[in-house]
């Protein structure tokens, strides 16, 4: 009845059987909290983000943090060797994680990371794309949709201009990036379902 945590945001996939559920949960929380804080720090640096209402800043971050983390940690997935590196530095093969109980979500994250990394974006491009992922006016609970929409449009225009400038012969990259947004939503939904199931167990 050994328990495993297959989310790469853990330090390790192995759970100490001596630990209580509460201790396991707290350890997981200690592991992902710094990553969430980094997402907030990143959001603060997006020009115009701090001008949104505090309610909308929180709503965007609550809804989009997982998607931002998927983009930021895409490099944890090693496509060539089919491995995933956890935050604690331990590396696991996808087969090993599957044997530990990982399902469609991790496979889908792996596929997403593979496609995103294949675009060969620069750090600046990746950063701007991440801002576009976060500032989405159709997240639930947004009170001032017009302000978020205006910021979203500005960021999308900036991303298009940067991609066009850096990849003049690869006009499809911008379209491919925009098509990643629904993929991220779908991963987010799968993740939410897993979280609910996890809490139940």
């Amino acid at each position: 009845n050994r328990m495993y945590l297959v989310c790469p945001m853990n330090m390790s996939a192995y759970v100490d059987p001596q630990k209580s559920g509460q201790e396991v949960w707290e350890e997981f929380s200690h592991s992902f909290t710094p990553a969430v804080r980094e997402v907030v720090e990143f959001a603060k640096k997006i020009p115009g983000f701090r001008d949104l209402s505090q309610h909308d800043q929180v709503s965007l971050l609550k809804a989009g943090t997982f998607e931002v983390l998927v983009v930021r940690f895409a490099s944890l997935f090693d496509v060539q060797n089919r491995t995933v590196t956890f935050l604690g530095g331990r590396k696991y093969s996808m087969d090993a994680l599957r044997a530990m109980g990982a399902g469609d979500l991790l496979n889908s994250m792996f596929d997403f990371s593979e496609k995103l990394m294949s675009l060969g974006l620069s750090e600046e491009e990746m950063s701007l794309f991440t801002a576009v992922v976060l500032v989405s006016a159709d997240r639930s609970g947004i009170e001032n949709v017009n302000s978020v929409e205006a910021l979203q449009e500005t960021l999308i225009r900036a991303l298009r201009s940067l991609i066009t400038k850096n990849h003049p012969n690869e006009s499809a990259i911008f379209t491919k990036l925009l098509l990643k947004l629904p993929d991220l939503r779908s991963l987010n939904n799968m993740h939410s379902e897993q979280l609910l199931a996890f809490k139940v167990h």
């Binding site: 929380s29 992902f32 909290t33 969430v36 804080r37 907030v40 720090e41 603060k44 701090r50 505090q54 800043q57 929180v58 971050l61 609550k62 809804a63 943090t65 997982f66 993740h191 939410s192 379902e193 979280l195 609910l196 809490k199």
Partner: peptide, 27 residues
């Protein structure tokens, strides 16, 4: 009402990280 993000305590972490900055600005 099931709120997976909040089950992780995400809102609390986000609010504290955002507020920290507000306090810094007030100082």
């Amino acid at each position: 009402f099931n709120d997976p993000a909040n089950n992780l305590g995400l809102e609390d972490i986000i609010r504290k990280a955002l507020m920290g900055n507000l306090e810094e600005r007030q100082e």
